[in-house]
Design a protein around this nucleic acid. Structure first.
Length: 782
DNA sequence: TGAGCGTCAATTAGC
DNA sequence: TTGACGCTCA
């Protein structure tokens, strides 16, 4: 039971606390994961059976990391700890309790696209607008309802439509992401006996990123770990940035109220950032009102000051950021240790261009992409049908993919017949049913019949074949692969390669499945697809033996698991071998850290986003923007660049944004230069001069939110010639004697020039650092 | 069926 | 400005 000597007193307290709910307020960089991992190990070493521990996170990445680290501490015993994402935990509960909620174990998990296409169909059948926007609105409302958020719906028939949506899902033996959590909660509430089984199994619950929990997740926790259970939640109210997708910061703020007698441990010692960076972050965050209140501290020195970049426009900004990063690289810092953050994705394009021009290797960090490709989704749709032929969304996806002469009208007739006869589409494809479909010609009938034969062959396979074989069949027998192999274009070649890669991935799953089976181990936490539901928790209060629920279902096990992994897992994460600068949104930055960080667009209207500034904006929105800024700052270990642009072209408008109000909350002495004055926009000046009343709530071209009447555009179109006012991005420097500014070294004088144009090598004399050889493009004339 | 064109909208994004 | 989407025409 020895704890590592280098745990600090608070970390230690969090690890060893027993006997009641525990809230760990873990500041950025305070060693949070370490605490969770050691707490788990400590529990096991103190005699808790590993399978009685549930640790929940939000992302697969976090879960994977936690699992690895627990395994490093505990060895093989760690395999029995149930480390899982919320959704994956929900899915596993549902697989076991499927019958109780009207599903079979083979249920399909619908992703956003699937949901969208189902929603469109529901709306269409109800003679409502069925475009994407309406479908999205509809789904959002359904989701809010699932989240227990009361909705004063304007349409009146939302409940009925929502019910139809729900019924369609069930008829398809499918659930959406929301169901993965909502259905277990519903089930547990209705069936205390079922809940009791699960409760008996789980004695210790740990939750990571608790500030991000939404209502359903909170309810699930309340059910599985009611007051009195050993519940440990870890999080940081200052890093709550997902309000907009349902996260409720009051869960972490009110934890001591909800769980009476909860102990609270604050982890405030930061092991990541230099002092100045922490001080800047502190200055920003302490302006927020409702917080537990932490003050990060470090034993490190102050380190560098924050580099403040004041650019002419967004391209200039990108160039200067690139220059700053290149400079750090010259100083020996690998590109892999650097990152550029931005508030909105639209900012990334310019940044990418600047990186390319400056020949800086970069990656855009975003979620999944492989499984979003059309050809992969097609193949996966076949695979899902093999396991669950009732999934209409999947059938509709592949009915004419690859093209087999089943056009819109035929599909329409088929669907109509199916819904009339109350059948799923697969059943409607049965020979006797096809005969009954009205209005079909003989050719169409034959083609439908052929599709059914194909599907039957495939389904047959699913029961006997490995995941690899099934995937192979799904791309070969269907003609998916052939369709792209036949073509020459590079795109077709790529698609074919992707399809083969999918087969490869399925093969890997087979290997893993076999390995787990032969070792008798639980595959990554609780076994997802093994055994009847009764086998999970013992019925009589005796803790189940580890492995007691390993009676396997031989057929389709690996394929089911493969499909679940595809549904719940993002891109195969983890491998970022290349030495590249990471470009990402501030949201994507949470949880990461870099030696050097640049944040682009530190302007009112960008960060904080204009939505948080406009009329109807709530103070909570502004508070969240502030937290987002805080998250960005606290990612940096040693170098932090923040930049704003005088003018910014965005969405076809040119805006003149004031420097972010958050910058004003950073003590001025932490910057390497004074904050720029807030400038009046030329339009405002011009219009005021011409006697037009000007009253903008803030100084930029402001577009009112749609719901507030019309979206009037300031300034009127035609004002774009303003762009001419902006200094050229790539400076025409070259002449010796010229005064120039460099992003890192400031202002200096060109003392020698080698060549000309943006690639010229200049020798610039800076008062601060002396002579530097610098490529001309990294410098602007003053 | 798919290429081409006009319209419209535009944070953030995990499972 | 980009991009997504729906509609039209060959």
């Amino acid at each position: 039971m020895d704890l590592p000597a280098d745990l600090n007193p608070e970390q230690r307290a969090a690890v060893v606390h027993r006997g009641g709910p525990l809230l760990v307020l873990a500041g950025a960089g305070s060693g949070k994961t370490r605490v969770i991992v050691h707490r788990i190990a400590h529990l096991v070493e103190a005699g808790a059976p590993p399978w009685s521990i549930l640790a929940v996170t939000f992302t697969n990445k976090a879960a994977g990391e936690m699992r690895d680290r627990v395994e490093r501490l505990l060895g093989p015993a760690a395999r029995d700890v149930w480390v899982s994402t919320f959704h994956s935990a929900g899915a596993q509960i549902l697989r076991r309790e499927a019958e109780a909620v009207g599903l079979t174990r083979e249920f399909t998990i619908y992703d956003e696209d699937d949901q969208l296409s189902l929603a469109k169909r529901i709306l269409r059948e109800a003679n409502r607008e069925a475009d994407s926007a309406s479908a999205r609105d509809f789904l959002a409302a359904v989701d809010r309802a699932k989240n227990g958020v009361a909705d004063h719906d304007r349409t009146g028939d939302l409940p009925e439509l929502a019910e139809r949506y729900r019924r369609s899902l069930r008829a398809a033996n499918a659930v959406d992401f929301g169901d993965l959590l909502a259905l277990p909660v519903e089930l547990f509430q209705k069936r205390p006996d079922v809940l009791a089984r699960w409760r008996r199994r789980i004695d210790h619950v740990l939750v990571d990123e608790f500030q991000d929990t939404n209502l359903v997740q909170f309810k699930l926790l309340e059910l599985l770990a009611p007051p009195g259970t050993d519940l440990c939640v870890v999080g940081d109210d200052d890093q709550s940035i997902y309000r907009w997708r349902g996260a409720d910061i009051s869960h972490i703020l009110g934890f001591e109220r909800d769980y009476e007698g909860a102990a609270v441990v604050k982890l405030e010692r930061n092991y990541r950032s230099d002092g100045n960076i922490l001080a800047a972050a502190q200055g920003v965050i302490e302006k927020n009102e409702h917080r537990h209140g932490k003050r990060l501290w470090t034993e490190r020195g102050p380190g560098e000051k924050l580099h403040l970049l004041w650019a002419q426009d967004e391209r200039d900004e990108a160039d200067r950021i690139a220059a700053g990063l290149a400079e750090l690289h010259e100083g020996g810092l690998p590109y892999g240790e650097m990152a550029v953050f931005y508030r909105i994705n639209a900012q990334s394009r310019v940044l990418e261009e600047a990186m390319r021009i400056a020949r800086i290797p970069y990656v855009i960090v975003r979620g999944r992409s492989f499984y979003e490709r059309a050809e992969i989704k097609d193949a996966v749709a076949y695979l899902r049908l093999m396991v669950n032929p009732r999934s209409d969304v999947d059938l509709l996806r592949i009915v004419n993919s690859p093209p087999r002469g089943l056009g819109e009208t035929t599909i329409e007739r088929l669907s109509r017949h199916a819904s009339f006869a109350n059948l799923c589409l697969y059943d409607a494809l049965a020979p006797q049913e096809v005969l009954r479909i009205e209005g079909l010609n003989a050719g169409a009938r034959a083609r439908l019949g052929k599709l059914r034969v194909l599907l039957d062959e495939l389904c047959e396979l699913a029961h006997t074949a490995s995941a690899g074989t099934a995937a192979e069949a799904a791309i070969v027998r269907t003609g998916l692969l052939g369709r792209w192999e036949a073509a020459q274009e590079p795109e077709a070649v790529e698609r074919a390669e992707n399809l083969r890669e999918l087969v490869g991935a399925a093969g890997e799953m087979d290997a893993r499945f076999e390995r787990d089976r032969s070792e008798g181990a639980r595959p990554e936490g609780l076994p997802a697809f093994l055994g009847p539901s009764e086998a999970v928790p013992a019925a009589d209060g005796v803790p189940p033996e580890p492995g007691s629920d390993l009676d396997e279902t031989p057929e389709g096990g690996a394929l089911l698991r493969f499909l679940e992994e595809i549904a719940l897992l993002g891109e195969a994460d983890g491998n970022t071998p290349a030495d590249r600068v990471s470009l990402m949104t501030l949201h994507a930055a949470k949880g990461l850290e870099f030696d050097a960080v640049a944040i682009a667009g530190m302007e009112d209207g960008i960060l904080p986003h204009s939505r948080a500034l406009g009329f109807g904006a709530s103070p909570e929105e502004m508070a969240e923007e502030r937290r987002l800024c805080y998250v960005g700052f606290t990612r940096a270990r040693h170098h932090l660049m923040v930049s704003c642009a005088r003018a910014r072209a965005l969405f076809g408008d040119l805006r003149f944004n004031a420097p972010s109000r958050f910058l004003a909350d950073v003590p001025a002495e932490l910057f390497d230069r004074p904050l720029p004055e807030r400038e009046e926009s030329p339009w405002k000046r011009e219009r005021a001069a011409s006697g037009v009343h000007v009253d903008y709530s803030y100084d930029q071209s402001y577009r009112a939110p749609r719901s507030f009447g019309g979206g009037r555009r300031y300034p009127p179109r035609g004002r774009r010639t303003m762009e001419l006012e902006v200094a050229p991005t790539v400076a025409p420097v070259g002449a010796t004697g010229m005064t120039v500014r460099h992003a890192v070294f400031g202002v200096g004088r060109v003392v020698a020039a080698d060549g000309d144009g943006p690639d010229a090598k200049l020798t610039v004399r800076f008062p601060s650092v002396g002579d530097k050889r610098i490529v001309a493009r990294f410098v602007t004339p003053v």
